[in-house]
Amino acid sequence: MTRGMNRRGFLAVAGATAAGAALATTVQGTARAAAGAFRVPAEDVRHTRTWMAWPDSTAIWAGKLGGVQADIALIARTIATYEPVVMCANSGSAATARSMCGPSVTVLSSIPVDDCWMRDTGPVFRTDGYGGLDAVGLNFNGWGNKQTHARDALVAERIAAWTGVPFGYADLVGEGGAVEQDGAGTLMATRSSLVNRNRNPGMSESQITTAMCDAYGASKVIWFDGVVGQDITDDHVDATSRFLAPGEALVQMPLATDTDAFSRDARRQYGVLSASTTATGRAIDAMQLQGPDYNKIRSTNRNFLASYANYYLCNGAVISAHFGDTQADAAARATLARLYPDRVIEQLNIDRLGTGGGGIHCVTQQQPVA
């Protein structure tokens, strides 16, 4: 595989703005104080709604904005057939968002955004098992100050305020796509994203592990090395490895002939997971999801992300993607249908979004039922 080497790479040229530093210090430690009772649940629990964000920056999406907006609208309309969707949009583009998304999607113009990556900018919701709900912000800093993010840095707190739930900031800088949780005490993440001085300078892996566990209500992190500096996220875990349930995980595998950095990393992730245990000591059953042949997909963009693993679970459905490798697309659909037999499998063409190095999971954030 020669393409896909710089996922979301073109986004970095949009410039970087440090934002939210003062805000991040106002309620540090709130997440830790509640960690004994609250936990980020697994993503397959019932949702109250899905949160998304409407892109409108021609600086970030030069020559690509219309197509990306069409893909975002398609994802929102599809999810809205299964559960409510709330789209955050800037006031100047809210009318366009409403027109393209249709009446089934609620568009809010009171929470401004810089871009569409709600998985990374939105709040991480937690439940306590007794009807309680709160939210944690991960101090989004534009993936290490690689992109302007003055508005995106405030999205998590503003959504929490809109929902009326208690909110606190985690004691680390990161993104939702950088962390996978099983809902039962185990997390997984890449060192390349989080143990990185562009997010957490001066913090050791042990300190970051503690901060992650405090924020997510977990007790163990499975670390992968990841890939540094070849995409704007520094290799988010949710493009490769996902939890299915406590003790069960899924890894998207490359072709045997693929030798690029991300393919090597995927094989290492599978090896690490296969030898790992959960927080309770249960051996992890690591399953494989075959990725497509980049020579057979529709896109010829070098930054394209063809990740079946970057699917989103909503009430009653799995929202995934297809890329034009018909054999691999069909096999991925069959695998997801086997893993989620009680859900409808929706496969969407999101090729325009994929040129930005992201997928369906990257642009969605679930709010679980308390």
Results as ranks from 00 to 15, higher is better:
Met287Glu: 13
Gln290Lys: 12
Gly291His: 06
Asp293Asn: 15
Tyr294Gly: 02
Tyr294Ser: 00
Asn295Asp: 15
Lys296Phe: 00
Ile297Ser: 01
Arg298Lys: 14
Thr300Gln: 13
Thr300Trp: 04
Asn303Phe: 14
Phe304Met: 12
Leu305Gln: 03
Ala306Met: 05
Ala309Gln: 09
Ala309Glu: 04
Tyr311Ala: 06
Tyr312Asp: 10
Tyr312Ala: 11
Leu313Met: 08
Cys314Lys: 00
Cys314Gly: 13
Ile319Cys: 04
Phe323Thr: 00
Asp325His: 01
Asp325Ile: 03
Thr326Met: 04
Thr326Tyr: 03
Gln327Asn: 07
Asp329Cys: 01
Ala331Met: 09
Arg333Glu: 12
Arg333Asp: 03
Ala334Cys: 04
Thr335Cys: 04
Leu336Trp: 02
Ala337Phe: 04
Arg338Ala: 13
Leu339Tyr: 01
Leu339Gln: 01
Asp342Gln: 14
Asp342Ser: 14
Arg343Leu: 02
Arg343Val: 02
Val344Cys: 14
Val344Ser: 08
Glu346Phe: 15
Glu346His: 14
Leu348Gln: 06
Leu348Gly: 05
Asn349Asp: 15
Asp351Gly: 08
Asp351Asn: 15
Arg352Ser: 14
Arg352Met: 15
Leu353Trp: 09
Gly354Val: 14
Gly354Ala: 12
Thr355Leu: 12
Gly356Ser: 15
Gly357Leu: 09
Ile360Thr: 10
Ile360Tyr: 06
Cys362Ser: 11
Cys362Met: 11
Cys362Asp: 00
